[in-house]
């Protein structure tokens, strides 16, 4: 689980990638990920191609490699899972040093690690180069229902407020000697979660009053969308298009 640092993944900058409209980046990300997922595991050359695309984008984005790689660590639990596959996989087995591993499992592990890592890398790049409000505006531009975008924007706004309240409660509990050791210790945590819900809900009531006070009448008005030039779409989608082309080639060859 990631922590609640709404901007933990964002790297402030003004690069080419940062300046690209969020809607373009979202579509490009989706195309890239679909291409990666749809590529057969044997097509190692295709995965090298995707890695190259990602590296070019990373360089263009001016996001430091170290920043990028530490954020990519979110992938780790799945790598752990994937590493089990050669041991539990089926079919013919080969000796790998002292271990006997399944060939299919080995391929499976490679498949999962390559695909999950490349996709997560692309997601990290989006999050690193796009401000949260811009992602929301991009989603709304891509016709995600306004209500969902509005809920997401409230969620993001109050994430740190709610998490801060929660953190303070837990610090107060720890200050009085509370430490969860076993299942018997769940109760105070759960009760504090209940209290947190009540506080969140009551804040929801006050926020609603504040919205009414400023003329809210039930219609969520999203600001006007900035126009995206066709050339921006074309340029922004190049990496995604190249990835899809690689994928098609890998499936046909």
């Amino acid at each position: 689980m990631s922590g609640v640092h709404a901007h933990a993944l964002h790297f402030h900058g003004h690069s080419l990638i940062h300046r690209l409209p969020a809607a373009v980046k979202l579509v490009g990300l989706l195309a890239f990920v679909v291409a990666v997922v749809a590529t057969p595991a044997q097509a190692v050359w295709a995965f090298s191609g995707y890695t190259l695309i990602l590296m070019v984008l990373l360089v263009l984005s001016e996001v430091p490699a170290r920043f990028f790689l530490t954020r990519l660590a979110i992938d780790l639990p799945f790598i752990a899972f994937a590493l089990l596959l050669p041991f539990v996989g089926e079919g013919p087995r080969v000796a790998l040093g002292p271990l006997s591993v399944s060939v299919a499992g080995l391929l499976g592990a490679w498949n999962l690690i390559a695909k999950a890592t490349l996709s997560a890398g692309a997601s990290v790049l989006l999050a690193a180069t796009t401000e949260v409000p811009d992602i929301l505006a991009g989603l709304s531009r891509l016709r995600v229902p306004a209500v969902l975008v509005a809920i997401a924007s409230f969620m993001i706004r109050y994430l740190e407020v709610v998490a801060g309240e929660f953190r303070r409660t837990r610090i107060a509990m720890a200050a009085r000697g509370y430490q969860a050791r076993s299942a018997l210790d769940w109760k105070p945590v759960a009760v504090s979660a209940g209290a947190l819900f009540i506080r969140s809900f009551e804040r929801g009531e006050r926020v609603y009053q504040a919205m009414l006070a400023r003329g809210y009448d039930g219609n969520w008005r999203t600001g006007a969308h900035e126009t995206i030039a066709r050339s921006q779409w074309l340029a922004g989608l190049i990496p995604g298009i190249v990835a899809v082309a690689i994928m098609l080639a890998s499936r046909l060859l």
Partner: peptide
């Protein structure tokens, strides 16, 4: 909308609860 948004924030926070 604000209630749903705050509940979402609440769930996000509560998901950090490892037991």
């Amino acid at each position: 909308i604000p209630f749903a948004g705050l509940t979402a924030a609440f769930i996000f926070a509560v998901q950090m609860l490892n037991f």
